[in-house]
């Protein structure tokens, strides 16, 4: 067994998990909302891309560009119509509503697309690889990892360099004072969820191209995303990437020892981090 190869694959897999996690982290950071339907929304994004590809026959990357505004609108509307109503000091209503949403999304997909597993075809890209001498890396995993970095750079830029980002941070710190300064928290929340859904679409693109998916795999993606966020420490997107990498490496190492241990190894890595660093590796937020 080639250890370097296994670890390299794990690091790249971590990019995918960081993509899963970035949207979750964004929404939690701004409105303290944990969206239990996050994984199912990723799977829904994958089906949307699949639908666009199969109807128009265009490249999946272009299809994702078409899906993005749709997903943004969906997230915006979801926040406006449903989630804004349940935000508050009590954590119970948002949790139960997003849990209900998770069940609804899963079953809508099951009804619309059946339980058969699907895949977004990416042509030659699926098997293309780069030989780096020590290891050979797939182009698709490399693209995933690069996209994760790009998404994090973009989100950080929006957060710390734009007026929208200032509004995000202000609302996150203190919605009441922010609204005295002319910011409408409700609108800011809707915008944040919309942006999170664009990230979800990017995650969905790679989820769909890299492996088979079916309507029931959402909750597992939510759990990986959540683990990456907690390992990285709340409020730090680079930390989230590190968290994703840790889960990814643990999974590939586990799988290399015994294929049945792949998922288990990821969870155990999470529990170990939680045991020694309860606030994650690079915590920034204090709640």
């Amino acid at each position: 067994m080639n250890w370097i190869d296994t670890i390299a694959q794990g690091v790249l897999l971590g990019g995918l998990y960081a993509l899963f996690a970035a949207g979750l982290s964004l929404v939690f950071g701004i409105m303290r909302l944990v969206n239990l339907a996050h994984g199912d929304l990723i799977v829904m994004g994958a089906y949307l891309i699949l639908l666009v590809v199969s109807v128009t026959g265009i490249n999946p990357f272009l299809a994702a560009l078409i899906a993005m505004p749709l997903m943004f609108a969906l997230g915006w509307g979801l926040q406006r119509v449903v989630l804004n109503r349940v935000l508050g000091p009590d954590i119970l209503p948002p949790l139960l509503v997003t849990f209900g949403l998770s069940i609804v999304v899963q079953n809508v997909l099951l009804q619309g697309f059946s339980a058969d597993s699907q895949r977004v075809g990416a042509g030659a890209l699926e098997t293309a690889s780069v030989d780096l001498g020590v290891v050979t890396l797939g182009v698709m995993p490399l693209l995933t990892f690069a996209s994760a970095i790009a998404v994090i750079v973009c989100l950080n830029w929006v957060f710390y360099r734009t007026s929208l980002g200032r509004a995000f941070r202000a609302t996150s710190d203190d919605p009441v004072t922010a609204s005295l300064m002319g910011i409408k928290p409700q609108g800011i929340f809707a915008m944040a969820t919309g942006i999170a859904m664009i990230v979800v679409t990017i995650a969905a693109l790679y989820l769909g191209m890299r492996a088979n998916f079916d309507p029931t795999i959402g909750p597992a993606r939510l759990i990986y995303a959540f683990e990456a966020v907690i390992i990285g420490g709340l409020g730090s997107l680079w930390g989230t990437l590190a968290g994703g990498v840790i889960i990814g490496v643990a999974q590939t190492l586990g799988a290399a020892i015994n294929p049945e241990w792949q998922i288990l190894a990821g969870h155990i890595a999470f529990l170990v981090v939680l045991l020694i660093r309860p606030r994650g590796l690079f915590p920034r937020a204090f709640d």
Binding site: F28, R32, L33, L36, I91, A220, E260, L264, I268
Partner: peptide, 28 residues
Amino acid sequence: FFAFRLAGAYFAIGTWVVAEVVRLLVAQ
């Protein structure tokens, strides 16, 4: 012991992770 380290909403997913771990272990 693990889940109480997670505040508020994260507690929910924390318990879910533990349930998954237990399921995967029992399946062995």
